[in-house]
């Protein structure tokens, strides 16, 4: 078994209508239950807005603290899930579910090393 990071990218600004958001959240809860019941769930969470981020940069033995985010962009990491899967195709089929549930692009990336079965 391998572990994969499913990163969900969100466009800058624009929060969906409350009823849309409620539907998305309900689908994500279902999806998480399904992941857990099949043993594929490792961890997952949504993140606060990038404006809440703080960046630390090492500088001459000191660490400089600045207002974040690390990189400004039109899209930012909105949340992520870590799944355990036999191979990329299995991870992609979970990723596809997240993309459909959220309407957002999802990046699927393997962790180094192997996970225990």
């Amino acid at each position: 078994m391998k572990q994969y990071l499913l990163s969900i990218y969100q466009p800058e600004g624009g929060v969906p209508e409350p009823e849309v958001l409620a539907r998305v959240m309900a689908e994500l809860v279902d999806l998480r239950q399904e992941l857990e019941s099949t043993g594929a769930w490792v961890f997952g969470a949504g993140l606060h807005d990038p404006s809440t981020a703080t960046v630390l940069r090492p500088q001459g033995g000191q660490v400089l603290v600045t207002d974040g985010p690390f990189a400004e962009g039109k899209e930012f990491l909105g949340g992520f899930t870590i799944v355990r899967a036999a191979d990329l195709d299995a991870a992609l089929s979970w990723g596809r579910r997240y993309a459909l549930a959220t309407g957002l692009p999802v990046e699927v990336r393997p962790f180094q090393g192997k996970a225990e079965d």
Binding site: K2, A85, A86, D87, L88, D89, A91, R109, P110
Partner: peptide, 14 residues
């Protein structure tokens, strides 16, 4: 190798 692209036939639906 690293992403684990499988060496198997796709499911009929895919």
């Amino acid at each position: 190798r690293d992403a684990g692209i499988p060496y198997r036939l796709p499911a009929d639906t895919d």
